[in-house]
Simulated scan of single mutants.
Amino acid sequence: MTTHACPGVSMDQLDIDVSADVEALYTDGITARKGAFTPEWADRLREDIEKAFAEAMARPGGAVGRGPNRYYVEIHPEQLRGFVDLVDHPWVRSLCTAVLGPDYRIVELGFDVPLKGAVNQPWHRDFPMPEETRRERRLTSLAFNVTGVDTEKDMGPFEIAPGTQWDDSPEFAHDMFPPKSHYRRYEELAVRKYPRRGDISCRTALAIHRGTKNESAKSRPVLVLGVDGPEAHNGDRHDTAVTRAFWESLPERVRRHLDCPVVDELEPVTQKHTIEGLVMGDA
């Protein structure tokens, strides 16, 4: 096991060997599992996203803007037919355990939708750097992304500056947004990602990244699964819940990691996971 693995986690606790993925997370800030699901599974995912997106856009507070023609929507697990498939996938389970430890918590389920006309986002990270990361260079949370489409060059692909998860500067606005004087470096480092239906990526949301301009007439929906280690508090920004019937239908090893209220009836999520500055659009 790589030396970056969570202390106390042994190989026999993992379903598969993810040592190379852990190393990639600590060096590049991102890794991926190609073909984790079938394209047909991803098509069902997109159907669920499109249904939830239409519902969210029809009510106040259902979606939050991430710049012009770009939205984020948080959903409840039972709105996604493939929820258990995703969170119980051996690669997802093993990577969470290796990086965050056996007591990791699933705290976020949502999706981003860049539509036609979405512009370049400002370079950013998704939350301020935790003290554990600053002091110990240790990751305390992970973000998994699953595309609902085969990503093409004109669809505003995700762009990341590898290795920038350790960048730490008092110049960062809100501790998340580097000043434009830093942009040249990020543009020189930048790598665009073109996932296909069925692929899963995993990244630290501290790595500097952005969504790029969507020059096509197509949307590019992407599912977001957020996972915390015991010391992280990203769950405070989210309102995921499950009904009692859905909770009882879940495998015990999924329930063990699902950190959300169990309720009699679901209430539509009013979005509160805003990222200051992204509504400004093109940086």
Rank of each mutant, 00 (worst) to 15 (best):
M1N: 05
M1A: 10
T2W: 04
T3F: 15
C6V: 02
G8S: 10
G8T: 01
V9D: 01
Q13H: 14
Q13E: 15
V18R: 03
S19R: 14
D21A: 13
D21L: 01
A24F: 13
W41Y: 13
D43K: 12
R44Y: 04
R46Y: 11
R46C: 12
D48M: 08
I49W: 05
E50F: 07
K51W: 02
A54V: 14
A56V: 06
M57I: 12
A58I: 11
A58G: 14
A63G: 02
V64D: 05
V64S: 06
V64K: 04
R70M: 09
Y72N: 00
V73M: 03
V73R: 00
Q79R: 13
D85H: 08
H89F: 13
H89M: 11
V92I: 14
A98Q: 07
L100N: 06
P102L: 12
E108F: 03
L109S: 01
P114Q: 05
W123Y: 12
H124D: 02
D126A: 06
E132N: 05
T133A: 06
R134W: 09
E136Q: 13
R138D: 08
R138L: 10
L139H: 15
L142D: 08
V146Y: 11
G148E: 05
V149A: 11
V149M: 04
M155W: 15
P157L: 02
P157I: 13
F158C: 12
I160T: 05
P162Q: 12
H174D: 15
F177R: 12
F177W: 14
K180V: 14
K180H: 14
K180S: 15
S181P: 07
Y183R: 09
L189A: 09
A190D: 07
G198S: 10
S201N: 07
C202K: 09
R203C: 09
A205M: 14
L206E: 08
H209I: 05
H209Y: 03
H209D: 00
R210T: 06
R210D: 07
G211R: 00
S216F: 09
A217M: 10
S219C: 01
H233C: 04
N234D: 11
G235W: 08
G235E: 02
H238F: 02
T240M: 15
V242D: 02
T243L: 10
R244F: 07
R244N: 11
W247E: 07
R255W: 07
R256V: 04
H257N: 05
L258E: 06
D259V: 03
C260M: 10
V263W: 07
V263P: 09
V263R: 01
L266S: 05
E267M: 00
H273K: 11
H273G: 10
I275A: 08
